[in-house]
Nucleic acid binder design. Sequence first.
DNA 1: TTGTATGCGTTATCAC
DNA 2: GTGATAACGCATACAA
Lengths: 337, 337
Amino acid sequence: MNVTIKDVAKAAGVSVATVSRVLNNSSAVLPTTAENVEKVIKDLDYSPNFLGRNLRKCETKNILVIVPSTDQNVYSQIIKGIQDAASPEYDVLISTSYSYLNTEMRLLNMLFNRTVDAAVLMGTQLDAETLNELNSRYSIALCCERVEQANVLTVTCDNEKGAYDAVSFFAKKGFDRIGMVTTSNRVISSVDREKGYMRALSDNGLSYDEKLIYHCSYEYTDGFAALDYFWDMKNPPRAVFCISDLLAIGMTKRAAERGIEIGKDLQICGFDNISLSSMYIPELTTVAQPCYEMGSLVVKKLLEKMTTGKENNETILLPHRLIYRSSAPSDDGLTDN
Amino acid sequence: MNVTIKDVAKAAGVSVATVSRVLNNSSAVLPTTAENVEKVIKDLDYSPNFLGRNLRKCETKNILVIVPSTDQNVYSQIIKGIQDAASPEYDVLISTSYSYLNTEMRLLNMLFNRTVDAAVLMGTQLDAETLNELNSRYSIALCCERVEQANVLTVTCDNEKGAYDAVSFFAKKGFDRIGMVTTSNRVISSVDREKGYMRALSDNGLSYDEKLIYHCSYEYTDGFAALDYFWDMKNPPRAVFCISDLLAIGMTKRAAERGIEIGKDLQICGFDNISLSSMYIPELTTVAQPCYEMGSLVVKKLLEKMTTGKENNETILLPHRLIYRSSAPSDDGLTDN
DNA sequence: TTGTATGCGTTATCAC
DNA sequence: GTGATAACGCATACAA
């Protein structure tokens, strides 16, 4: 077996209590004995077993972050914010659910069995009832994707307003037929972005045409079909708002294949500002989520909640930002709103 | 406090030992008592505290995976392979080091303090000596990036041969001046890829010209300067091999800005086959690493090592694949080698 | 300032 | 088939 606190105590000629004390520099220990113990610890290359410590203290200083995936999305940027806010007090453990409810449940076991003290759920598949039940017994928070009726600490951005701003921008630029690509899956962020689209149409005196809405899945390749759908209409929209950058990039890719020039023949705006959006050719105009801030804030609030013990189930909407790049018109001549 | 095994035992009118037995269905329990206990477990919504279990069993069934980052690289694809190979017996905990040695060391504490049973290190900053020391006391493995002199279980791909194939391809297509973009940082995969470049030149009767090598960092934006460097030469190379897709995409982006047509004026080949490489315009010719297989295999071998207790510090090179896309010539008229 | 003793929640060994 | 009970490694209340 490994070297334990007992071995250190024996070698140092003190009690385990004293060793424990120097480990946690909890109460006063004579400098000389402390020095001696530390020397032994180094000599024996002792490293405390946290299973014992955690069991005793009823805490692990681990935070679990469940993300659907880490490829081509906003999560890796959010994770950085989470990490920084948690460090150095807490370690952040990331796990991917691949959007499977079963996998997510299995990962949540780490919360139930005390492997972690808290969990941040991004794009959760859990329903409101389950979340509320969970929230009453464990420290959890949502990030990115809120859940309707869930009374759980949530940090996200104003998806409705983000979409509203993007679509209003197109309207103000003179486009009267504006398409939208959204998900068939009724994810709340998509629904919110659809609402923003609707409100922008209405506020700008544009009529709603259901043919201008294209429903599909999340994949980049779904953007191909979206482009074809719109461009093969009798009277194609000349501006399209996509509820995600990935779909927008899929459209752009397909447009290039068909010789359609994005930013000229067709204007496209995405949502998220994933790192890819500024790397692409052409660069993608998009609604930026404040990823780092979202990650940072959700952990800050969560830890606050854990230390104070005060209930806090607020939903915080962080401000988005419309980023003008080449896939859509510049913002010249428009006053800020 | 929470409901424990004791509470269940009391409520079920049996001993904690019996409850433990039904939990682990270790030894035979009367079906009727088992049924009863399970009912109580459900009623009390009991969930075993793994800190106790782990402490007792000296294992956590957790595997730590340390990655430099998850944005725009091969790691997210490798993680999927790791996850699948570990599941359902082990949980996979991912943590990002952002390539900081200090952070990596801090994360390795989870190994020392028994929060995890094993660790997979990707692109580690640790030196061979430290790794060997670690390997003698803990279950670790390297993936993606090997470390010279480190006698540790390693799964990666044949970087030298991958580069060799890419550069040979250019040579066979008639290019006699082939550039290379590599990292100033002496990372072993870069060094191996450079070696492959050299050997391909030599095997194809091409002379080495140090001016055709551009050294920079890892960032996508470093590709910009690389493009400028080559294109502003008196006699620019018409084919360039980049040791990473990200650098190749940076070059492509800058080329578009300058009106240089990649795949026509200039041929570019990357390395890695990150998901972005097939999404980009133009699509990137690249050397594909078998990411999923690498992740899957490293965990398989690691678990094998842990269960059998047999030492296994082999280095396994998985086969790469040259993927022909639009940023470089097609492979028409070339025989397979 | 330091040591002794107890308990955290669980599993495993031994009786019965 | 089941129940006591010791142990896992540690932190802490209490005694000294």
